[in-house]
């Protein structure tokens, strides 16, 4: 069954799609870097998003400024992610199945802890006061907060792109992916760089969780709703490709919003079918490099 949309509804859906796509990018950029560079399938990534959102909720509850809360939550998650990577995942280097089991185990542990601390009730913090309201243009209302999410995502995308493609640090990371032993012989501290990537990915996921909270609200199960979305984004876009993650995120943002509005009965088909097609027709993803 297809539901017809008016053009005003379509515009609102498009804005929501862009905002949701931005959020998905913040979530999946880290997932993509961790998977593409370190080959770790981090099934905790949705949990980082949810735990980060809960951290944000509590900080906001204590009266912390919204952006400060988002940054602090990211910082806390960087520390937690760094500890898990350094002391546990590092021992399982190159062993995919144990990595899957470990990260999945942690995902369940985090879910339980969240349920215990923040109960089963949903939390929906309000957007920062300056971004409440909407701007009016072309006879339509554009909700400010959603535009802000989009702007933050684009800014983060540009910053990440500069870091990876245009700095010495980024070149060292890429060298460490190209040939890890020789990179070490050349003096690059590959293991520390990889920990840094993991921390960054965890921080971005938590930051995204806080940014998403006023929009999606926070509730038990959010972790395993977000994880498959990050997976789809990375499969669509190609692992390790930031451009792929960006395009994949917006593509999925649109599929998600328009799919639910127009084909409510087929929501999952619309989400997963493109992923299956890409897997079969272009396994490296739309922007992924072919691994030699």
């Amino acid at each position: 069954m297809m539901t017809q949309l008016t053009s005003a509804q379509a515009v609102i859906l498009a804005i929501n799609s862009f905002a949701f796509g931005g959020l998905l990018f913040l979530l999946s950029a880290g997932f993509s870097l961790i998977f593409g560079l370190m080959r770790i399938p981090n099934l905790m990534h949705g949990s980082f998003f949810m735990l980060g959102a809960y951290f944000g909720v509590s900080l906001l509850d204590w009266g912390v400024n919204f952006w400060v809360a988002a940054l602090l939550s990211g910082l806390a998650m960087a520390v937690i992610g760094g500890i898990i990577e350094r002391f546990l995942l590092r021992r399982l280097e190159g062993q995919v199945l144990p990595q899957v089991l470990l990260t999945l185990g942690f995902a369940f542990i985090i879910a339980d802890i969240c349920l215990m601390v923040w109960t089963g009730d949903p939390w929906q913090p309000t957007a920062p006061p300056s971004l409440r309201g909407a701007v009016q243009a072309f006879g339509l209302f554009f909700p400010l907060y959603r535009l802000a999410i989009l702007a933050v995502a684009v800014a983060v995308a540009i910053a990440l792109w500069i870091m990876v493609d245009w700095t010495r640090l980024g070149a060292m990371i890429r060298a460490g992916v190209d040939d890890p032993p020789i990179a070490r012989v050349v003096g690059i501290k590959v293991s520390q760089l990889f920990t840094l990537i993991f921390c960054l990915g965890a921080a971005l996921a938590a930051f995204a969780g806080v940014m998403g909270a006023p929009f999606l609200s926070v509730y038990p199960g959010l972790d395993f709703e977000m994880l498959p979305l990050a997976l789809i984004v990375v499969i669509l876009g190609g692992t390790g490709s930031l451009l792929g993650a960006l395009v994949g995120s917006f593509l999925l943002g649109f599929l998600y919003n328009f799919g639910q509005a127009m084909f409510p009965d087929l929501a999952y088909v619309i989400l997963f079918l493109p992923m299956l097609l890409v897997l079969v027709l272009r396994p490296q993803g739309l922007f992924g490099r072919v691994v030699a």
Binding site: R168, A171, M172, R174, A175, V177, D178, I182, A183, I188
Partner: peptide, 14 residues
């Protein structure tokens, strides 16, 4: 050599 890096980057990282 690091094949996915440019010539200049190969020198820079070392």
């Amino acid at each position: 050599i690091f094949k996915s890096l440019t010539v200049r980057e190969n020198l820079m990282v070392a």
